[in-house]
Design a protein around this nucleic acid. Structure first.
Lengths: 345, 345
DNA sequence: ACGAGTAGTGTAAACGCTTTCTCGAGGCGT
DNA sequence: ACGCCTCGAGAAAGCGTTTACACTACTCGT
């Protein structure tokens, strides 16, 4: 088995031309006489020849691979960004290498090293991150190394650690989204709005916190610390437990702004378990506009993120080798209205 | 910028050894004197040297890449399989190339060709497919080509087109799962069970159809054609529309078996819209056990698939180069019970 | 003390492609 | 007619590794 694969040399021999000519026919843009071109193409077909990507990449051409590095692949948030990346990569005739970190910074380090080995022509780091000094320093090294390896680094959904950072960034507007969500609640009369926040220090969740507070301030509502919580886990358990606490403590609130839809789902569960109706008794608004949002027990109003566009823009930025080497794009968000918010009469 | 990257030659020079020695230190299992090894490792660190994966792959070593080809990356079904593949690949020190077809067979063809270029050491084709003669013939060619390119092909969630097909397959038991689901409904007294089926001719959905019919027969229930439908779209709209029809036609039924959870979600929507209660008036059972199943308006009972194990097994089979070149693994399913099924009194 | 291993290292030939030179053959302006 | 261009095609030099082969210097068994 495993018959030897034909090489460019075999094609050249069969077509009666030199390997250079075959290469030129295959790569396109170089003047080759029509007759020669046809002969080569015939030989390629007859031999069922395919180029060896490694040989091609080795001899100077680009690798045609974009890598996406993210937390996991199953969370809708990441999955949709990945979809955008994959789609745009495919359009640009690129393959897509997917790596997951599970949130482990050391794994991220390791993956970046692997990407250097692979000479990926773009590396896209997705998702918010908790910015420690160590992280900053380390990321700077990564980015430098990648730049030297002639790959473009793109930070997707997280800001650059410093202005001179050798990477392009594309983010969605966390502050704006949270501001809009909270304002929406406020504008229909809610004042006692609980905030179910994410991890403190994380660029993404800090932004949402800020948006919440700004909106409250803008409407002259005071932020009751008893109504604000932060937690690293972004699962339904958090929402469920936290709302249970609030209810048990008898803290008064008429609305909830949850840091994502999963947390919101847990919150709704807790509310129902306690005999509260949504949205009649408590209004709620989520974040991410996950696909299942419309099918929750109460169709959930949620902040919609430009997932797909985020992924696509990241790839576009990475591949466009002309123009400024560092740039920053901020994508907007909007609220998808469903039935989980009711005006306070 | 873009300073030249150090090569193995630079390392050799700095360490005062030959490139062969450096290579041997890097590749591990080969006798190298302790002192020399240390010196080389120091040079590697000082130069911040990383190997060039393309050069390595070109010169005979394996490519360390496994490719997964699937419909899309956002549907939980595929996402979870991909997660399994990625995890297992990472454990085997492999990178994971993800390609989506959007269901286009021509795109699948194109991708397989790309994988030949890449010399991926495993190519995993995920998901059911409609088996036309053309498909059979074409797939056979793909598989042969891949085998020649020294890659392993694995069919994941779809049977091999023929017994001599040069690929390994790993499937989950569609017939068994559907049989179990339908039996569950039957065993609590339901007889008028609507089946919301998938595309006819597709290996996956045909299996579920068979399971449904066998269970019905086993319990001596007759299959009313008016209660059975098939549709290629697997979205909520299908479930919503179909249940709407059933209701409008006044067809009598007490339970629904939906081909997946999305369709089930749509069905529930339609039921509620018509003032029916779930499960009090109509019981329903889904397929896939999607993560959002517990958070639907009625927590959905669903057939659980071994997504993760499916992906992992696929990779394991592909990478284990010893043992039979063609083999077949069938993974079992089970029902995750929630609140969407009520006994008929 | 001598030939046979063997551990440790070096040399150089692939691996399959791209790309820079080179060069020949026509076409054309004067 | 003659030099000059342009177009098409070939030769060959890499690209950065791995690895087969060769060689040296020991260590042993006899």
């Amino acid at each position: 088995m495993t018959t030897k694969r034909p090489t460019i040399r075999d094609v050249a021999a069969l077509a009666g031309v030199s390997v250079a000519t075959v290469s030129r026919v295959l790569s396109g843009d170089y003047p080759v006489a029509g007759a020669t071109r046809t002969r080569v193409q015939r030989a390629v077909r007859d031999l069922d020849y395919v180029v060896n990507a490694h040989a091609r990449a080795l001899s100077g051409a680009t690798s045609k691979v974009v890598a996406i590095v993210m937390f996991n692949v199953t969370t809708p948030f990441y999955a949709h960004i990945a979809a955008g990346v994959e789609a745009q990569a495919a359009e640009a005739d690129r393959l897509c290498l997917v790596c997951t970190t599970g949130g482990d910074p050391d794994r991220e380090l390791e993956i970046v090293k692997l990407m250097r080995e692979q000479h990926a022509d773009a590396v896209i780091l997705v998702g918010g991150v908790t910015m420690t000094d160590d992280y900053r320093e380390r990321m700077h090294r990564y980015a430098k190394a990648l730049e030297d390896a002639n790959s473009r680094l793109v930070l997707c959904g997280r800001p650059a650690p410093s202005p001179d950072f050798p990477a392009v960034t594309v983010e969605y507007d966390n502050v704006g989204g949270a501001y809009a969500a909270t304002s929406h609640l406020l504008s229909v009369g809610h004042r006692r709005i609980a905030f179910l926040g994410g991890a403190v220090g994380n660029t993404t969740f800090d932004g949402r916190d800020t948006g919440y507070r700004r909106a409250m301030a803008a409407f002259g509502a005071t932020v009751d610390p008893a109504l604000v919580s932060h937690h690293g886990s972004l699962g339904p358990e958090y929402g469920f437990a936290r709302v249970g606490e609030l209810l048990a403590a008898g803290t008064d609130f008429t609305a909830i702004f949850a840091v994502n839809d999963h947390v919101a789902a847990g919150a709704i569960r807790a509310l129902r378990a306690a005999g509260k109706r949504v949205p009649d008794d408590v209004s709620i608004i989520g974040y991410d506009d996950t696909p299942f949002a419309p099918d929750l027990s109460t169709p959930l109003t949620s902040v919609h993120l430009p997932h797909d566009e985020l992924g696509r823009t990241a790839v576009r930025l990475a591949l466009q080798r002309t123009g400024p080497a560092r740039q920053h794009v901020m994508l907007g968000t909007h609220i998808t209205m469903r039935d989980s918010v009711r005006p306070l009469v």
